[in-house]
Design a protein around this nucleic acid. Structure first.
Lengths: 350, 350
DNA sequence: GACCGATGATAATACCTATTATCAAAAGTT
DNA sequence: AACTTTTGATAATAGGTATTATCATCGGTC
């Protein structure tokens, strides 16, 4: 049990200033109306007493009284602060921290959530979710049930990454992968490519679907013709074979790491990247290089995504739930195509 | 204002199970004694009702009632999640996250603290400090007044990094830089060095003092003779000059970045590292290389430091303040010397 | 001088959980 | 039968803040 050192309370201030606890509360919140009036003199006296003391409002009591606390929860479906996840979470967390400092709110990381069948669960018997005014959800693999329950309970939250649950309108801030993917395919066509591979992880997130959809749309409309290759457990043996069979001159991958792996496999098979086969990731590529060349792909504004998510969350928190519909709660931010050096003109001859 | 969606409370459960709120609380906490007794039948009925519902205890109410909540505060004197600070904070945060997950507690980052004259302030009018059971303090430049006030108020906290305030006994978990520094100097002596430079940032943290003390002890006792060089605002012009004047054959620096900078400056002046001058950092060197060689220095167990800090904090939280004295609240962990490749045998001739 | 509006301040209450004190009924004792 | 003990459960309260309802007083008005 916590030792409980007694702290300065409004009651204490009231005693010193010779007023009631109610008056102290009123002064602190600058309340003044027809029903409650406090003359400047009294007001000043109370403020003095507060100034002299080390009084700070007890957040728990505020919360219990139904007020906001400027505390935002952060829930990640995987550990967020490990070196491995830094590549993905790093910019997001950085953006969150900066935005939080800006608007003056604290961040409560729900690190305690027990891991059940692979991913953390948001709702459990001892969840401290309610201590936060709202919550940011991060992670590749969100749980649809969690999202639905949050919506049902009218708990303010924002998912990072596009969501398309049909059971509930989930607030999110994501990146527009559709137009980015389309644009990169366009570029490849412009560079003379006609056949390509798409190496993916067979994920089911909306962002993954977005990319896949564009891939298939391109194939169907006679743009760039794609052949799909699933990378299972890092097994990329299929890539070389598929490239030979289809005569593909470009490989698109779902993320930058996959691209690096593919480059390795192709290199081992004697296929040079990018002179023989172009390589492009449909994801953030900053800092990724293959054979010393900057990888082609996207630049995604993840810092802004985080900031925007926190901003939206604050809007939700300060808006009555009935009026949430009038807010723009589903936002897509535009990224930029990073040309890089691994998507190049198609070899002239075969 | 927060929308305040009504949640399932003990009262609600009580109504369903046809008992009083008190009984529900008793069942939840497995209370049973001479004063309060609940037969298995009733107990079961209540548990059923809870199981059926989505009840979770309101952490704010728990807190207000003086109970612990398994929430630990994390306070950093500088932004912790930015790419620049990751080198220092990264392993600590990673260790914290892992330990927190282990013991089942959440982490509240006080990102809101306004920046006053350079560093964040822990105590301000709207601090949410009290929401946490205890607090971990991170940062190079801690504020002595903050520490004193925490001790005075009997608020459970642990500083990461050795502290030596005389005004209060500050609980900390740090790394033993004294013996590490001594050992590295010993090595240098063993490799034939007699004169060296110590390039430092003129910091005043206890860890900085520890190193400096060993430097001076060595000089005084006729071991390795050091000349001090202060690196101000990255101005390292003094290093080359000092090396020439003193005939130093080894340079020690306060941290790895400083070592990299020194290597650059020496290189520009035509002095080869390490063949002409050995280079050693009195700090963590993992991942740092100069001229392709692994930098000599320390390996510090920062993951363990974080885990140990959280563990100590939990002990403090669960122990009555009067008995804190009986705990081992000041802990130093041992690091390892990383020989590296930049501290080498002294040139035979001059 | 009786009524009225305005003024300054407070008592009471809600929020939710944990604990302490209290109570009614049943069971056991002499 | 009168008394005590045990059993099962609850009322009351603390904890700190914000809000609503209430109250006492004063100055003015006819």
């Amino acid at each position: 049990m916590s030792p409980k050192t007694r702290n300065v309370t409004q009651r204490e201030i009231a005693r010193i200033a010779g007023v009631s606890q109610t008056t102290v509360s009123m002064v602190l919140n600058d309340r003044d109306g027809s029903n409650v009036r406090i003359p400047a003199a009294t007001r000043e006296r109370v403020k003095q007493a507060i100034e002299q003391s080390t009084y700070v409002a007890d957040p728990a009591a505020r919360r219990l009284a139904g007020l906001d606390n400027q505390i935002m929860g952060v829930f990640t479906y995987e550990p967020a602060l490990s070196p491995e996840s830094m590549d993905f979470y790093g910019p997001l967390l950085n953006g969150l921290e900066r935005a939080a400092e800006q608007v003056g709110c604290d961040l409560l990381f729900f690190t305690s959530s027990p891991v059940e069948n692979g991913s953390r669960s948001l709702f459990h018997r001892k969840t401290r979710l309610r201590l936060a005014d709202g919550c940011i959800l991060l992670g590749q693999q969100m749980d649809g049930d969690d999202l639905k329950r949050l919506v049902d309970e009218r708990f303010p939250f924002v998912a990072v990454g596009r969501r398309d649950e049909t059971t509930a309108k989930v607030p999110y801030v994501g990146i527009d992968y559709v137009s980015l993917t389309a644009e990169l395919i366009e570029r490849a066509v412009g560079l003379g490519h006609t056949d390509a591979l798409y190496v993916h992880r067979n994920l089911h997130s909306p962002a993954a679907r977005d990319r896949m959809q564009q891939i298939q749309a391109s194939t169907a409309s006679g743009g760039l013709k794609f052949t799909l290759v699933v990378a299972e457990d890092g097994d990329l043996t299929g890539v070389t074979r598929a490239a030979e069979q289809t005569g593909a001159t470009a490989v698109f991958t779902e993320d930058a790491f996959l691209a690096e792996d593919v480059a390795l496999v192709l290199g081992n098979a004697g296929v040079e990247v990018p002179s023989a086969i172009s390589l492009t990731a449909l994801a953030e590529v900053r800092g990724h290089r293959v054979h010393g060349r900057a990888l082609s792909g996207f630049q995604t504004p993840r810092l802004q995504v985080a900031a925007e998510a926190l901003s939206l969350l604050q809007q939700l928190v300060t808006t009555r739930a009935e009026e949430w519909d009038s807010l723009d709660t589903q936002r897509l931010l535009q990224g930029k195509v990073e040309l890089g050096e691994t998507l190049v003109e198609r070899m002239s001859a075969t």
